[in-house]
C-alpha cells in the first residue's frame, strides 16, 4: 500500500473515484439484503420462490449444456479454419449481447411460436416454446451463447495448432487429438465459458418474459411480486437472489481460479 503514501494527485483522484465505484456497486446490494434480512428466511421457505429459483437454475443448466454441445465444436472449427465470410460471422456471434433482451425474445417468438414454420415443426414432435420450459431454455441459450463461444474460442486460440499436428504425426486421429490433447488443454477456458453462460442464462429476464412467461423463473417471479405486491414484498425475494448470486460467485472463484492448471 506504499503507493497511497506517494501523495500523487493522480493517485488521490483515482482513489476517490475508486471509492465511488465500489460504493455504487456495493450499496444497493448491501442495503437491499440488510433491509430485507428479517424476511429472507420466510422467502427461503416460500414454495413459489423456491420453485421459481429451481426453474431458473434448472433451465439455465440445460441451456448451458446445450451451448456446450453446440458452441464448443463451433468454436473449435471457427478457430481452426479459414473460410469466406469468417469475419462477418465473427461479428454476428456477439449480436445476442448487443440486442435489447426483449428484442431477442420477440425474434425468438417470431421463429419458435407454433404459428411459424420452425415452431410448427417442433410442435409436431411435441416440443413447444411459448410458455414452456423449452421456451425458457431457448431464450436463455440465445442470450448466453456468445459467452460460451467466446470463452471456448479463446481457449482454443491459446493452443498451438502445431501441438495438435504433433498428435496426428504420432498416429492419433483428429478426434483422438481433440479428445486427448485439445480438450484437456482448453478445459479451463471451457469451464469458464460454462459458468459465464450459466450465470448469464440464470439472470435473463427480457427474452424469457416475451417467449415463456410461464413457468415463472426467479427474475420473472420477482418482477411479478414487485408489480403486484410492491417493494416491501419483493425485497426478501430480492435478498435471496442476491445471496444466491454471491454464493455462485464464490463457487465460480473456487472452481475456476483455484482449479489445477492442466499444464503445471
Amino acid at each position: 500500500m506504499a503507493w497511497i503514501k506517494t501523495k500523487s494527485p493522480f493517485i488521490t483522484v483515482s482513489l476517490v473515484l475508486s471509492v465511488v465505484m465500489i460504493l455504487f456497486l456495493m450499496v444497493p446490494v448491501i442495503a437491499s439484503v440488510a433491509g430485507s434480512a428479517s424476511g429472507i428466511p420466510g422467502a427461503l421457505t416460500d414454495e413459489r420462490t423456491l420453485s421459481a429459483i429451481w426453474t431458473s437454475f434448472y433451465c439455465a443448466f440445460i441451456a448451458t449444456a446445450l451451448m456446450l454441445v453446440l458452441g464448443v465444436p463451433f468454436a473449435y472449427l471457427f478457430t481452426r479454419s479459414e473460410f469466406w465470410g469468417k469475419k462477418a460471422l465473427d461479428s454476428l456471434i456477439d449480436i445476442p449481447i448487443l440486442l435489447p433482451h426483449n428484442t431477442a425474445g420477440i425474434a425468438l417468438f417470431a421463429v419458435l411460436a407454433p404459428s411459424y414454420p420452425i415452431g410448427a415443426a417442433f410442435a409436431n414432435i411435441g416440443i413447444g416454446f411459448v410458455d414452456t420450459m423449452w421456451g425458457i431454455v431457448a431464450a436463455m441459450a440465445f442470450v448466453s451463447a456468445p459467452f460460451m463461444i467466446r470463452s471456448a474460442q479463446e481457449a482454443f486460440t491459446s493452443i498451438s495448432p502445431s501441438v495438435e499436428k504433433t498428435g496426428r504425426s504420432l498416429g492419433a486421429t483428429r478426434f483422438q487429438v481433440f479428445r486427448h490433447v485439445t480438450l484437456p488443454l482448453a478445459s479451463r477456458g471451457i469451464l469458464t465459458g460454462c459458468l459465464l453462460t450459466w450465470a448469464r442464462a440464470v439472470s435473463e429476464f427480457g427474452a424469457v418474459a416475451i417467449l415463456a412467461y410461464f413457468p415463472k423463473t426467479a427474475p420473472i417471479y420477482l418482477y411479478d411480486v414487485f408489480v403486484i405486491n410492491g417493494l416491501k414484498a419483493a425485497l426478501p425475494i430480492n435478498g435471496v437472489l442476491i445471496l444466491l448470486a454471491i454464493a455462485i460467485l464464490l463457487v465460480f472463484r473456487v472452481t475456476v481460479f483455484k482449479s489445477k492448471n492442466p499444464i503445471r
Partner: peptide, 30 residues
C-alpha cells in the same frame, strides 16, 4: 497418422498437460 513418419521439431512440442511418461506413451495409446 497413417504415414508412420516420426517427427521432431525445433519447438520441443510436448503435450503440456501430460508428464514425460504420458507424453512418451501417447502414440502407443492412440
Amino acid at each position: 497418422e497413417k504415414r508412420g513418419i516420426g517427427y521432431v521439431s525445433q519447438n520441443c512440442l510436448l503435450f503440456p498437460h501430460m508428464n514425460v511418461r504420458q507424453n512418451v506413451e501417447f502414440g502407443l495409446k492412440m
